[in-house]
């Protein structure tokens, strides 16, 4: 980044404190996720039966669970799982959905119609239920859960990109390029694809929260990550049975992690959209 860009970026940050705060939150979560294991002495899986159900203290800032595992260490590991799966789901979903939208918008006609009806059919289900059904159908586990979530997010990208492509194709500069004899491949690569990138990115940011929440939900019902992996949703399930006997910290902290990650990306998506395209329409799941 050049110095001028950096200064412009700093100015935006100063003028939008909520944007700054959400970037900071994501940065902290990312640092905890990546460097947590090196900076924090406890192992997320290490059982310590002498230290079960300890409330938060200096030694264990988030307390310990029923078999004495340090919840802060598990929280950091959970951040790594949630954030990385969230990013993976969003990227693959954006690529697959973007391709479908691109093909649909460019081809038109029967293919377009068939693809869009398929997208409509997927949209007729509650996304979370469909993700659950797909996950259990494919046998459960982290990868299949991620796949199920990705699948349910595809229509949101596809429909948006399709309408974007149709809009861009009618813009004067694309028509001019067509009249000037540019081939279809050149037009698609040089003119249409670059203009859908910002749409795709903002929609991806908006769907990141859904992906993270859905993964936790699948973990919560026992479909995604399996015990003892410290995925945040799984941790909340584990905390559930202790919540009513006074050990609230087990389930509460991972929820804060989810809330922080989702709220921060949602503010981020909103702000970037406001700055880039104040009139655009993006679905947020």
């Amino acid at each position: 980044m050049r110095a001028g860009n950096l200064r412009a970026f700093a100015k935006i940050l100063r003028a939008n404190l909520d944007l700054t705060a959400s970037l900071l939150i994501l940065l902290i979560l990312a640092i905890l996720a990546v460097f947590g294991p090196f900076l924090w002495p406890y192992d997320p899986l290490a059982i310590s039966l002498r230290e079960t159900l300890q409330p938060p203290s200096l030694a264990h800032p988030m307390g310990t669970d029923h078999i004495g595992r340090d919840i802060f260490a598990r929280f950091n590991e959970g951040a790594l799982i949630s954030l990385s799966v969230g990013v993976a789901v969003v990227i693959t979903g954006a690529v697959v959905g973007g391709m479908i939208g691109l093909v649909s918008g460019i081809s038109g006609g029967l293919l377009d119609n068939a693809l869009m009806r398929l997208m409509d059919a997927i949209l007729a289900f509650p996304p979370l239920i469909l993700a659950m059904a797909v996950t259990v159908g494919l046998g459960g586990g982290l990868e299949t859960a991620a796949f199920g979530i990705m699948l349910t997010s595809v229509p949101y990208y596809a429909r948006l990109i399709r309408s974007d492509v149709i809009r861009i194709r009618q813009l004067p500069f694309v028509e001019a390029a067509e009249t000037a004899g540019a081939g279809p491949a050149r037009i698609i690569l040089r003119h249409i694809v670059p203009h859908t990138v910002s749409t795709l990115l903002i929609q991806a940011a908006a769907l990141f929260g859904y992906s993270v929440l859905a993964l936790a939900a699948l973990g919560f019902v026992g479909l995604g990550t399996q015990v003892p992996t410290p995925e945040w949703g799984v941790m909340i399930t584990e905390g559930l049975q202790y919540a009513l006997t006074g050990q609230w910290w087990i389930g509460v902290f991972p929820g804060f992690g989810l809330l922080a990650a989702v709220a921060a990306t949602s503010i981020l998506a909103d702000k970037v959209r406001d700055l880039v395209d104040p009139r655009g329409q993006y679905a947020q799941l």
Binding site: G209, A217, G233, V252, G255, L259, A263
Partner: peptide
């Protein structure tokens, strides 16, 4: 929008 419903349920119960 950012709160997992099951977690909120847990918090409300607590």
């Amino acid at each position: 929008m950012g709160m997992p419903p099951f977690w909120l349920a847990l918090i409300l119960l607590v």
